[in-house]
């Protein structure tokens, strides 16, 4: 009886694995992407659209590669802003959410501030940042931090409260300290939520860094965008956008990889489902 159940389970899981590895599912999005680029190229050439309105993808890719030294220099500047802002948001957001989980009064004190900081259009702050922090890296990092903080805190907060009361009772019956309960059960339970927050925060962080560079910077891909547009160099605008897409994608991938490393078992699939909303 148990034997048959075992083999059944093994065979179904084996089936699922072969199904997954056989799939050529990734070909479909690659094809649709290629098709849309070709369509774009065709339309621009067929209707002879002027380059300063919409350049053809071929010249955009050419510039994106030919000007790589210039673009790379600015991409590194933007990357630092994204990275530092995100790390700060992470380093402050997770403890903040933890404190808010355990203290109702602190939660009531911090929550409205957080909401205000979130609904306030951060772009409106950018000119102020010039006054306060001048040009350079610091205002960019502050902007990125402010934008990335909210999703991290909110999702960590939600994640830390998903733990089942029975799980905590079980831990107490083992004589666990509050710290052990947090470290062994509450935090790992929250991880899928935390990672879905981190993914959103990472995409926001890219936006935050670019917005800051639009307004108050003399370096970075955001600055390249503004500068090229002022010179009506549309090819460079689009080349910078291509670099931004690649940059954002790489940062997102980094979070995704970290997730695969830290989230195990079925909670991995759960976090994938949560992340599917993106």
């Amino acid at each position: 009886m148990t034997e048959t159940v075992m083999t059944q389970i093994q065979s179904t899981s084996a089936k699922a694995v072969t199904k997954k590895s056989k799939g050529f599912g990734f070909l479909v999005p690659v094809c649709s992407l290629l098709a849309s680029v070709l369509l774009w190229e065709g339309i621009v050439r067929f209707f002879s659209v002027p380059v300063y309105i919409l350049p053809p993808p071929s010249s955009i890719f050419h510039t994106a590669i030919a000007q790589h030294q210039y673009l790379l220099k600015h991409a590194i500047s933007t990357s630092w802003a994204i990275f530092l802002g995100f790390v700060w948001a992470f380093a402050i957001g997770i403890p903040l959410a933890t404190v808010m989980t355990f203290s109702a009064s602190l939660r009531r004190a911090i929550y409205p501030l957080l909401i205000v900081a979130q609904v306030l259009p951060k772009v409106a702050l950018a000119p102020l940042f010039i006054v306060w922090f001048g040009f350079g890296m610091f205002p960019k990092v502050v902007m990125t931090f402010l934008i990335a903080l909210f999703p991290i805190v909110i999702d960590t907060l939600a994640g830390l409260s998903t733990v089942r009361p029975e799980s905590l009772m079980l831990l107490r019956s083992m004589g666990a300290t509050r710290w052990q309960s947090f470290w062994k059960v509450r935090l790992p339970t929250a991880l899928p939520h935390i990672f879905s927050g981190l993914k959103i925060a990472m995409t926001f962080a890219v936006v935050g860094a670019i917005v800051a560079e639009f307004v108050a910077s003399d370096s970075g891909l955001g600055y390249v965008l503004v500068d090229a547009r002022a010179n009506l160099d549309m090819v460079m605008v689009f080349a910078a956008i291509i670099w931004l897409i690649v940059l954002g994608f790489l940062f997102f991938l980094a979070v995704e990889l970290a997730e695969r490393l830290f989230v195990k078992g079925s909670s991995h699939r759960r976090s994938q489902e949560l992340g599917a909303g993106l």
């Binding site: 029975e166 799980s167 009772m169 339970t189 078992g265 909670s267």
Partner: peptide, 15 residues
């Protein structure tokens, strides 16, 4: 703490 508990839902940790 000199006891063991089993709940209705096994309360196993997914990870």
């Amino acid at each position: 703490t000199n006891l063991g508990i089993v709940f209705q839902n096994a309360e196993l940790l997914d990870w």
